[in-house]
Design a protein around this nucleic acid. Structure first.
Lengths: 160, 160
DNA sequence: TATGAAAGACATCATGT
DNA sequence: ACATGATGTCTTTCATA
């Protein structure tokens, strides 16, 4: 187990907001010496608490419209078919640039996050690429009308 | 409209993988002078293509189990009630630390991403906190059995 | 817009309290 | 955990093409 104190948490919170804050800026805001901040961050990285640094892309590259899609396949008699078929679908979806994220859900379900320029374009994508897949039991589409928490997850996920 | 060339895209791709790459490292990998890389990044930030820099948290802080929940309310006679009620639910959910993301979906739907230590703990949370809400027409739970694309979205969303 | 060079700011490390 | 100083590296700026 990893134990974090208030200082660790304060550093993490600030870096989440802006990972380009310099050690001296962090030191000043948190009223601690630079050497301490440097040491803490080093430890946080070593312990894997900080996994990596990244950038969030902004409006110009973000899809204007996003939906979540739940796909459920029929369950075939031979279990091995199911596994291979689900894997095939997830891999195919993963390669498409407007598919932001893909997860398996249970034994015969898939959830995908899909972005596009308009709702219509996404609907077309769902109709052409997903609903045409054979042996589906269910396709549910949940539009993202307004993201209330975690809004910049889209800029995080979008491909360049 | 923002036009990106190959160099811009290459910089963005590298920074997405590791935002701590120095300008000199980027310059070396892309065979361009440091001043050029510096200039491009400055422009990308000005244009809003790069929104901000952040950290992704690692295993120690990530919930081991994640589900998506779709909530749909009844539609009351008075439209204004619906709006206020939905807003109330989304705001309440947003404040909870194990609720990773919340979005409105259509007029009377909400999608939430929920993390926890075990599936059972999440089930309990859903039963206690969500299913007890009045006037719900539907609550659907989609477990994330295995994330295939966008895996580190969890470490991106998790609260510190 | 791209580049090269120079100046200043910064992270990093060792040592000691 | 904190302080200090030495070192090398990086960012930033500016003049120029």
């Amino acid at each position: 187990m990893v134990q974090l104190d208030d200082l660790d948490r304060a550093i993490l919170k600030l870096l989440k907001q802006d990972a380009r804050l310099t050690i001296s800026e962090l030191a000043e805001r948190l009223n601690r010496p630079e050497s301490t901040i440097h040491f803490r961050i080093k430890k946080l990285i070593e312990k894997g608490v900080i996994d990596r640094y990244t950038i969030i892309l902004g409006e110009p590259l973000k899809p204007k419209s996003v939906v979540a899609v739940y796909i459920e396949t029929e369950i075939p008699v031979i279990e091995d078919f199911l596994e291979k078929y689900i894997n095939h679908i997830t891999k195919t979806l993963s390669m498409l640039p407007n598919v932001l994220a893909v997860a398996r859900s249970g034994r015969n379900g898939i959830i995908a996050l899909i972005g596009g320029e308009t709702e219509e374009q996404i609907e077309k994508f769902v109709d052409d690429t997903i609903r045409t897949l054979p042996s589906l039991r269910k396709v549910e589409v949940f539009p993202f009308t307004n993201i209330v928490k975690g809004e910049d997850v889209i800029g995080f996920l979008v491909d360049v």
